[in-house]
């Protein structure tokens, strides 16, 4: 009895797998991107105009993406890594150079977002959306000006701060305060940063990378060191949430599009990139997600209110830093932060 059930179940599984495998034709694009980052209407529009079906597979962090990509399994045609992971993929020859003849709308991109340190020759990646990491202040509850990281991590704000749960961001903040460049991560600098971080971690009420806006909006904390996208959503919700780029230095990150080695449908990937570069399409993405849009033509279509959002389009014009690929010093950061949190 049981074996028969097992046998028929196995049969059903196999049939299901094969039918799915068989349907994977050349008119399909395997996209591996951040979840909720590519609006459904954009995917539908692309399918309508090209006939190519998009299989949108999602991840929730760059590291998750890297782990699944490296293990193999699915042949992705287009991936959406953050800048520093793209750099690592380029170094390890895991990306395919882009064919700019197939990307006529490349010219829509603003020069500030091109030839960035992760891809100095602009050979492998196309910027999708950018943002910064900065300070959010609930101006109804905090009356004093908070302009930098030092102001934020002041003992008077103990138990009123949320930060992203990301060791590298915290270490970056410490390096800024110490006056070191944010990519100089070595044993000596980390040793210097340690007492500073130990002191900060005691002040922080919660660490949340996925939705630091929750605690701010709930009023459980009054200050935050968060992603610009989160701050932009908060500002849209209530203008009392002010976004500040720390005066010590600010980190900008860019999510890019790239074609990985082993892609089966590079043509479709290029077609999709070019479709995303259309101003009217790029505008849809900006309407859904208030990040910084690197597409100059699309910015012309945005409303004054969108452009006025200080977290999406900071007035601050100074040069921003980007993360570089760290190699194995990532483990040092993780060990340090685990140790400090553990001592809490």
């Amino acid at each position: 009895m049981s074996t028969r059930i097992v046998r028929s179940l196995v049969g059903a599984f196999l049939a299901l797998t094969f039918s799915l495998a068989a349907s994977a034709a050349s008119k399909e694009l395997n996209l591996f991107a951040w979840s909720e980052y590519v609006p459904q209407s954009v995917l539908d529009g692309f399918t309508k105009s090209t006939g190519i079906k998009v299989n949108y597979e999602t991840f929730a962090s760059g590291e998750e993406m890297l782990a699944k990509l490296l293990a193999g399994g699915t042949a992705y045609d287009l991936i959406q890594p953050p800048d520093y992971i793209a750099e690592a993929l380029i170094k390890n020859k895991l990306l395919v150079p882009l064919d700019y003849k197939k990307l006529p709308r490349f010219k829509n991109l603003l020069p500030a977002f091109l030839k960035m340190p992760h891809d100095p020759e602009q050979k492998y990646t196309i910027p999708y959306m950018a943002s910064t990491v900065g300070i959010v202040v609930n101006s109804e509850r905090v009356k004093e000006p908070v302009t930098g990281i030092k102001d934020l991590f002041s003992p008077k704000y103990k138990g009123r701060i949320v930060t992203v749960d990301d060791g590298r961001e915290l270490v970056t903040a410490a390096l800024y305060v110490l006056g070191y460049p944010l990519n100089d991560i070595n044993a000596k600098n980390l040793k210097e940063a340690r007492p500073l971080l130990a002191q900060w971690i005691k002040l922080i009420k919660l660490f949340d990378s996925d939705s630091p806006k929750t605690a701010l909006l709930n009023g459980d904390v009054d200050l935050g060191y968060v992603w610009g996208g989160e701050a932009a959503l908060l500002w849209n919700e209530n203008k009392k949430f002010i976004y500040v780029l720390p005066k010590e230095g600010a980190h900008q990150f860019v999510d890019v599009l790239a074609v990985p080695k082993g892609a089966k449908n590079s043509d479709a990937a290029h077609a999709f990139i070019d479709y995303l570069l259309r101003p009217e399409v790029s505008k849809i993405i900006s309407d859904e997600f208030p990040y910084t849009n690197p597409n100059g033509e699309a910015r012309k279509l945005l409303s004054p209110e969108q452009l006025a959002n200080p977290a999406s389009y900071p007035k601050d014009t100074r040069k921003l830093d980007t993360f570089r690929h760290l190699g194995d010093s990532g483990a040092m950061i993780d060990e340090l932060i685990t140790d400090l949190k553990n001592a809490k």
Binding site: G167, I333, K341
Partner: peptide, 17 residues
């Protein structure tokens, strides 16, 4: 605020690589 063994293991595969 404090790490658990599950965080630590997961972080090795993701953040610490």
């Amino acid at each position: 605020q404090v790490p658990m063994i599950g965080n630590v293991i997961q972080n090795q595969f993701f953040r610490a690589r």
